[in-house]
């Protein structure tokens, strides 16, 4: 299974048919409040390939979080289905772990880092020795072995999100769901956390679905990007990211392909949010926008 790190293979050649881990089919979610229906998600269909990292990117308010909550079983869709590894999702399945944007509220302030990471394993009555092994391993992999006995609120925001990631990894999910996981941290920390996700997803052999509004982030991280339309959302486009597998914050983002992909997704989303699309004859406005 181990990929040669030197290969500049695009994506692992999809074996036909694709090895699908998660299938979202005709997903629709309408909220009803005070007799008024608000359609957040209209019709979403896409698949996650086992072992891949997929980003969902869309204009703000495009129902990304709603979609993630439906997939994770926290929210019941109005219609449509979510199937994880052959089993329909009717509530949070054992094979998924969610990392929320609000790490400070997702971690339990009354528990130490170690206790936080260990708790989901303890609740499912795993043996003490197995728990200790998994907790040590996951804390080590996010670089927090030395902070195991601190409380989350004694750590910086980036470190707290690492704790939440460690908790998810120790849980040994097939699918790791991340909802805008780096939206509340500064730029440098964000880059570090992005690289951390790229590293651990191979180390733990986990499929990742990450929701973001950041186009650069989606392309940098992904094997595949799903672009949502403005609400009520549908899949605007699904594209493979044929960048070298080994990503680097500097060199990957220097590649012409990266710039092309970025511009492509940018235009899709701009069009969705109703703004002017810079075309060839309209390059002056693009230049102005670039300087701003």
């Amino acid at each position: 299974m181990a990929a040669d790190p030197a290969t500049i293979a695009m994506n692992p050649t999809p074996s036909n048919p694709r090895d699908v881990l998660l299938r979202v089919d005709g997903l629709k979610k309408t909220y009803s409040a005070q007799g008024r229906d608000v359609e957040a998600v209209r019709d979403l269909t896409f698949e996650l390939v086992r072992g891949e990292l997929t980003c969902i990117v869309g204009p703000s308010g495009s129902g990304k979080t709603t979609l993630l909550r439906c997939i994770s079983g926290l929210l019941e869709p109005t219609s449509g289905s979510v199937v994880l590894d052959g089993a329909p999702v009717k509530g949070p399945p054992r094979g998924m772990a969610v990392v929320f944007q609000e790490y400070g509220r997702s971690l339990f302030a009354w528990m130490t880092v170690r206790q936080n990471v260990e708790l989901p394993l303890k609740v499912q009555k795993m043996s003490k020795s197995e728990r200790t092994r998994l907790v040590d391993q996951s804390l080590e992999s996010v670089g927090l072995a030395h902070s195991a006995d601190s409380y989350p609120w004694q750590l910086s925001g980036g470190m707290q999100q690492r704790v939440a990631i460690a908790r998810a990894l120790a849980y040994q999910p097939q699918l790791l769901l991340m909802d805008e996981p780096f939206a509340s941290v500064d730029a440098q920390t964000r880059a570090d956390l992005e690289d951390l996700v790229l590293r651990v997803r191979h180390q733990f052999d986990v499929t990742v679905l990450l929701v973001t509004h950041d186009i650069d982030e989606s392309i940098y991280l992904s094997d595949r990007v799903v672009v949502l339309s403005s609400p009520p959302s549908t899949v605007r486009e699904e594209l493979e990211i044929p960048l070298p597998r080994r990503r680097d914050q500097v060199t990957t983002k220097e590649l012409p392909e990266f710039a092309h992909l970025r511009a492509h997704v940018f235009r899709l989303i701009k069009r969705e949010s109703g703004a002017e699309t810079p075309d060839a004859h309209d390059s002056s406005s693009l230049a102005t926008a670039g300087e701003l």
């Binding site: 909550r69 994770s72 079983g73 926290l74 949070p92 054992r94 998924m96 772990a97 969610v98 929320f100 609000e102 509220r105 997702s106 339990f108 708790l119 989901p120 609740v123 499912q124 849980y171």
Partner: peptide, 15 residues
């Protein structure tokens, strides 16, 4: 109880 903490507990299948 914080709704995010509650979602966390539900998603990790706490009884």
């Amino acid at each position: 109880v914080d709704p995010v903490a509650s979602d966390t507990a539900v998603s990790y299948r706490f009884g």
